[in-house]
Structures are given as structure tokens and as C-alpha cells.
Write a protein that binds this DNA or RNA. Structure first.
Lengths: 222, 222
DNA sequence: ATGCAGCCTTCAGCTTGCTGTCAGCAAAGC
DNA sequence: GCTTTGCTGACAGCAAGCTGAAGGCTGCAT
């Protein structure tokens, strides 16, 4: 699991990060909302640990922004004992759980594990390719935290390419995949759709293998 | 199979390496994380045997880094009996199996064989020649962890040479292979393409047999 | 029915990059 | 040193691929 930890108390942050690492989770520690936003714009996380009191604003702002753009990444709120209202508004804003400082690291582990389990059993495991998160069952693609809408043809193409990750898929195969049987196409429809798909998900994601077809690379093939 | 063994206990390392070699696996023994990283950046392995306690850090760091960048190379963890938590975090971090020291070499062989078998079912067996990894079905060549893109002609040449590994393939044969039937060529196209291919995959890979043709040596002569 | 919106195909012009040719240089053999 | 053979950089022609625009189709709402 990849975790984003937003906490301005360096000491606490390090301790939590340590704990998460030893639980086997890759963890990025950020000290402010601004830094956190920067991370979120380039990386997708499986879980966010969010402190409420940060130097440049309340953590809940970040949470609200996430939910507003339909990013459902699980969030666990870290809050001080005397700020009970934060907990309520936090949960209302779409947090998955909260922890009251000071908390036991073991308890944190447990909560994180619980949230992770809640989501790992979910029926839509996100496939990570390049900087894309692809939810095959829900036909959703996310990139840099942003949802991308694909048309049926675009999705069909993407699926066909993903089915044979790291392999080069020939244009004719893609064509067959777009038009089940028969239904001749005489022009460069595949190219056109590839072009549009690229525009949406990022040019680099799909490589052209000249004379053969197209390929999506996982980045680290077997 | 090519195995990376990371183990700082020289004696144990040598013993394991010996065993692996006699099982027919090319095995590189590295004594530290730093060395191991260096190897991984230049070579692709089929399996990694990773000790947990190393002079420059915990082996699990390496494992996490691998998985983080979506490298799914199978990893078997070697850990001491008293470090049970290592085993758990190791498996959580994406290890494929673990062995508790001291272990029986026969058991190691068995585990290695099991992991290898689990992965051998994959549909694209990579052919290893020199320091190249060649995926015949996907038209992919990797070297030092880097993907190399070949044009159709270059691939045709490479394929023709691989088809008769360790044998010298005549220029006229290669020519026929580039231009199926007819299609006269009057210049030194084969030489030109060989030159270009060499530039991409490494000069040493293809040997010139003056007056006859070219050859690719397997590095493991019969 | 009519209008509208979204998706798809077609086409044409443009860009990219593969490939054959050749010329000049390097290496090997004598 | 001379000849033969192979190597490689440069270049131009061309095929493959890219993409914007236009028009058609379908489904939906009015």
C-alpha cells in the first residue's frame, strides 16, 4: 500500500512513518497542505493519514477538495483530543476513520489495516499502469487524482491493450476488438481513437510500434 | 534461471551459490544492499534471494523499492528464526516465500524450484543471450533493464541470427530473410542494418565472420 | 417531429521515422 | 602497401502514423 501522511509535527510524523514502513507500506510524509496537494497531483495513494492542524490551513479542506472531485481515496483523520468538532465534521466530510492524539502506534496499524481490508475486498481493484489507475469493473480511469471519462471505443482500445500488457497489439487485432466480427472498416479509425485516447490519458502511455501496432508498458515487465 | 543472491555472510552465501549453480542457475552473490541495487540496475533476474539483515540496511527496503516501482521479480526472503516479524512484513511487502535460517539446502532448492515453476507458466519466456533479454513473442529486447525498440528490419535480422544461435549465418541468407522472395537489393543493406542493430543492442553481441556472414554467440557454447 | 448532444467514421494534409543508396573510412589479409 | 571486405554517417524518398475538421448517426428531451 502507498500511504500519504500529512503531519506537521516532525517527531510524530517520523514515528508514524516508521510504523507504516515496518507494516510494509510505502509512505510519503508531507508537512503542509501545499506539499500534500503537490503529491496528490502526481501520485495516487491507497490511503491518506491527515492531520487537522497544519501550518497552512485545516486538513479538512484537503479532504473536502478530494471528495468534491470524487476522489474516494480512504482518509484517516488525526486530531487532538480537544477538537471534538473536527472529528464530526471530518467524518461528515467523508473521512473513513479518525484517531485522537496521542494515539498508540499499534492502534494506528490496526485502523490502517482495517481500512485497507475494507477496500481490498472491494470488487474493483485498481490496476496501476504508469501513472494511471484503472478500475476495470467500473470503467473508470484516474490520473493524478483526476477522473477521466472514456467513450466506449476508447475504453475498448484501452482494455485490449491492457489485456496484453507489455505486449505489442497489432492494429488488426485492435480493429477486431472494436468491431466484433465482420463490420469492415476501411479507414484509420484505430489510429483516430488511439489519438483521442492518448490525448485523454497522456501521450506517453501508449507506445507506437511502427509497422506492428501499439503497446502499453507496465514499466517493469517480467 | 538467473538468480541474485544478497547475503552478507560469506560462508552461507557461498554455500547457497554453490547449490544454485549445481541446480543450473546462474547466480550472482552480493554482500550488501548497495551492491544488489547496482546489479539490479544493470541486469534482469528471474529470482532474488534476499537476506534481511545486511550491513547497510534491512533487505526489506530493497523489496519495497522493487514493488513500489512495480517490479514483480520473485523474491524469497532469508531470515533468522528470531525475527518473526520480518517474515510477516516481508510477505506483506510482496515477497513470494521465506526461509528461516538455518535452512536445509535441499529445501532451498525446492522453494526456488516452486517459485520458478509458478512463474514459468507465464506466456512470454524471455530468451537470454549475452546481456540481452529477448521476448520473441512480444518483439521486445531489454538490456540493462532498458527496453530497446527495434525496427522491423532490425528485428528480422535479430530473429534470423537467433534462429541459428552460435552458427554463422551468411549474408545472402539474411538478405533473403529481410526481403521474402524477389525484391532485389543491390547495395549493402544487410551491412547497414547490422550496423544499426549493433548500435542499439551493443557492438559485441553480433560477431562478423569475414567473408561468410554474422553470428550471435550464446555465451554458453555447446 | 424537431433540435440537440455525444460519439463515430471518413478524409486530407501534415509529421515522423524507416530504409536503401552511396561515399568515404577502417580493418583484415596477403 | 595494396586489395578486399566490412563499417558507418549522411541523405533523400517514401510509407506509416497522427490529428483536426466535417459530416452522419443515434438517442434523448422537448
Amino acid at each position: 500500500m502507498r500511504i500519504l501522511l500529512v503531519e506537521d509535527n516532525q517527531q510524530l510524523g517520523d514515528a508514524v512513518r516508521e510504523q507504516m514502513l515496518s507494516d510494509g507500506h510505502a509512505t510519503d510524509l508531507m508537512l503542509s497542505l501545499a506539499e500534500a496537494r503537490a503529491c496528490l497531483s502526481t501520485t495516487d495513494y491507497d490511503l491518506i493519514l491527515l492531520d487537522m492542524m497544519l501550518p497552512d490551513g485545516k486538513g479538512i479542506l484537503l479532504l473536502q477538495q478530494l471528495r468534491q472531485r470524487e476522489d474516494r481515496t480512504p482518509v484517516i483523520i488525526l486530531t487532538a483530543l480537544d477538537q471534538i468538532s473536527d472529528r464530526i465534521t471530518g467524518l461528515n466530510a467523508g473521512a473513513d476513520d479518525y484517531l485522537v492524539k496521542p494515539f498508540d502506534l499499534a492502534e494506528l496499524s490496526a485502523r490502517v489495516g482495517a481500512v485497507a481490508r475494507r477496500y481490498s475486498g472491494n470488487p474493483n481493484p485498481a490496476l496501476a499502469v504508469g501513472d494511471l489507475r484503472i478500475d476495470l469493473s467500473n470503467r473508470q480511469v484516474r490520473r493524478n487524482g483526476r477522473n477521466i471519462d472514456l467513450t466506449p471505443r476508447e475504453w475498448a482500445l484501452l482494455e485490449a491493450l491492457l489485456q496484453r500488457l507489455d505486449a505489442t497489439v497489432s492494429k488488426s487485432r485492435l480493429e477486431n476488438c472494436l468491431y466484433d466480427f465482420g463490420a469492415e472498416v476501411e479507414s484509420n479509425t484505430v489510429e483516430v481513437h488511439i489519438s483521442r485516447l492518448r490525448k485523454k490519458i497522456g501521450r506517453e502511455q501508449i507506445q507506437t510500434v511502427r509497422g506492428i501496432g501499439y503497446r502499453i508498458a507496465s514499466g517493469h515487465p517480467a
